[in-house]
Nucleic acid binder design. Structure first.
Lengths: 149, 149
DNA sequence: AAATAAAAAGACCTTTTTATCTTTTATTTA
DNA sequence: TAAATAAAAGATAAAAAGGTCTTTTTATTT
């Protein structure tokens, strides 16, 4: 449904939102290590996110990435739109070109409510709100293998 | 979520279930045309499905693919398992390695019920039952651009 | 038996996605 | 102002997915 690129972008943006600010910028390398994604790949993604004004960056020593108040008003939808394109979230689960209430695929009425639900979540909550929720609930965002015992 | 290969395999198996039988076998070419998928690619997929005893085939003139009563007892889950592997249906929506009720990703509680739902549908209904449902509801299974006006 | 039709098998090609490497540019600090 | 640091930009490489082609095998029909 989502490409790995979008997933990386979402996770690292949420990570940024929680852990960085204009006063505490973070380098790609640190973020990549924290959530365990390949750092040159993440660097590329961040270029796109900066371009789309979803995150901010400053070059040079003490530089890095961070999220401004304005950035934080963007949504996860904006991330997906800029990396994968929103259609990726809307495609028919079985790949039919025309699949809607009028002409549904065999699983349309199972998939459709889910899509509406997740799209709503991604569109109606700002990244800052989303990030706050994640932090409040103590959720991890890393791809690392957690050692829970 | 599902690869194109799995989607092709599901659609064409359901198509077979509805339109072919031991008495009326169908060639790859005809099926590929009917649902508009690349026929050499479908041929490859069908090899795997025959191997997994999800569909049957006879070589030579008047040969082709069809579904026996025994075949029809298999499920869509079986198809997915043989083409993509079932894990594809179970992966975390945001790509986290460990994502469950104990340690949920930010959208886990939206995604999990949906996954249970669709997995149930794919596992508890046989291909024959599934196909009957599709036929009864007059659903189309083609990837073609339908001319509805 | 020969011709033919269809699937099986396997090699091969193309495109997309994922990932890396190198060079350039901007910023800071000593 | 030089050295160091970090992102930007762009070229390249590797892997996976998607798709095609050719040859072989099997079965049927004439």
């Amino acid at each position: 449904m989502l490409s790995r690129a979008s997933k990386y972008a979402i996770l690292s943006t949420l990570y940024l939102a929680e852990h960085a600010s204009k006063e505490k910028k973070m380098s790609v390398k640190k973020i990549a290590e924290a959530i365990d994604v390949p750092s040159p790949f993440l660097a590329k993604l961040f270029q796109q996110l900066v371009h789309a004004k979803i995150i901010s960056s400053i070059k040079g020593p003490k530089g890095g990435f961070f999220i401004t108040k304005k950035n934080g008003e963007k949504t996860v939808c904006d991330i997906i739109e800029n990396i994968d394109g929103l259609h990726k979230l809307n495609e028919c689960f079985l790949g039919l070109n025309e699949c809607d209430g009028e002409n549904p695929c065999p699983v349309h009425f199972i998939v459709e409510p889910f899509k509406r639900n997740i799209l709503g979540k991604f569109r109606d909550k700002s990244i800052m709100e989303f990030s706050k929720e994640v932090a409040d609930n103590g959720r991890f965002l890393t791809l690392k293998h957690l050692d829970l015992d």
